Simulated assay, not measured.
Amino acid sequence: MVPVAALRAVPLPKTPRAFSCACGRPIFFRNSQCLACQRPLGYAATRGSLLALEAAPARAGKGAWREAGVPVRRAPRYARCANLDSAAACNWLLDAEEVAAGFTLCRCCRLTRTVPDLSQPDAGVWWCRIEEAKRRLVSSLIGLGLPVKSRSEDAAHGLAFDLLLSPPGGPAVITGHADGIITLDASEADDARREARRGQLREPYRTLLGHLRHETGHYYWQLLVEPSPWLEHFRSLFGDERQDYAAALQRHYAEGAPADWGQRFVSAYASAHPWEDWAETWAHYLHLADTLDTARSFGLDGERVELSYERFGPDVIAGGDDPDVQGFLALINSWMELTGVLNELSRSMGVADFYPFVLSVPAVRKLHLVHRVIRGAA
């Protein structure tokens, strides 16, 4: 007999990752063409769906597309992002409202304020890799209901990315965030360089997507936490962010993380300063939310995994004023069980653990605050 637990429906993902072409074959988030039938594909961010496309009737305008297989009268019109044929190779769509507003770049590409100097060797390849990671990030932010607007659409609170390369013999680019502007050293897209830096800094994990998730944590802290009642909750869990930030980072790089950092933080770097603790915790939340969404899109959920862990209970949550405590606990426990299996699969391939972290109770409490802030924003 099939266990009752195995008959439970897998929770619906907030950002689906499994799609099918009009021809019935599977297609994937970053595809711009079906490999089976050669149909063009495009990602409709507001729908969270990868669509098989066909040219819209001529009266819809030049370059207009619609979803294949949908009756003409019901099919919304789309335009493909102008970066489709650039080095960024963007497969996102613009809806009719965006086209009417005069946009030619999609919602994700509009966030990039500065592209790398394409005259430098490999810059085009690196830009492509960064934008690929950014599309993954932005689709998750939209799926979670977070505000995502470019600087051109919201001059006061919008988000922008400057993807920079150090000029030959010039000063190094520093990855970071300042008042809604995220600067990324585009050479992080070079796998060998990034791995060398990971080794030098003794980090268990360093990826483009991780960088982007971390830096958006700083942005959303400034947007959603600093001017809100969440600030006092933040200080009670993460500490007082008013302590000297530059001095804290200097001390961290000189002395390293405290020996017991694993009992209080999601990563060693999180121990440097409350802002970095928040950004690392935010990134971890996006890691688990998107990975679970991907797993659930393909019918897999942590609760179906036959692996017995001691599950986190309501006693680990600080404060009893959250009506969604059980939803958060289901999320975090599914994550722990799923990553336990994924780590074993990684080991069976002889590669590093898929998730090289252990979550302590204080770290789970911090993740819970991130969860509440995101739900409140949505």
Rank of each mutant, 00 (worst) to 15 (best):
N31C: 11
A22T: 10
R296E: 09
A378M: 05
H157S: 10
A9G: 05
Q243D: 04
L345Q: 15
L208Q: 07
H157P: 00
S360N: 04
Q222A: 12
K14R: 14
G61P: 05
D321S: 09
R66T: 04
D154H: 10
W275D: 02
R151L: 14
V341G: 07
A45K: 09
Y220S: 03
D190Y: 09
E241R: 10
W278M: 03
G61K: 02
K62S: 14
A101T: 00
E255Q: 15
E241M: 01
L118Y: 05
Q33N: 01
L345D: 05
A96P: 08
A36E: 10
R304V: 00
R39F: 00
Y245G: 07
W278I: 12
V72M: 11
L237Q: 12
I174G: 05
G199I: 08
N91A: 13
C128W: 09
G169D: 06
Y219N: 00
P258K: 13
R80S: 02
D277K: 06
T175F: 13
L212G: 00
A89N: 12
V325L: 04
P57I: 06
H177S: 03
A172M: 11
D117K: 04
T216P: 12
E344V: 08
L209I: 11
S32I: 01
S139H: 07
A160C: 06
R73L: 13
L331F: 15
A295P: 01
I27R: 02
A123N: 07
E337F: 00
L338F: 06
P57Y: 08
V72H: 06
G63T: 02
K366V: 04
A318P: 01
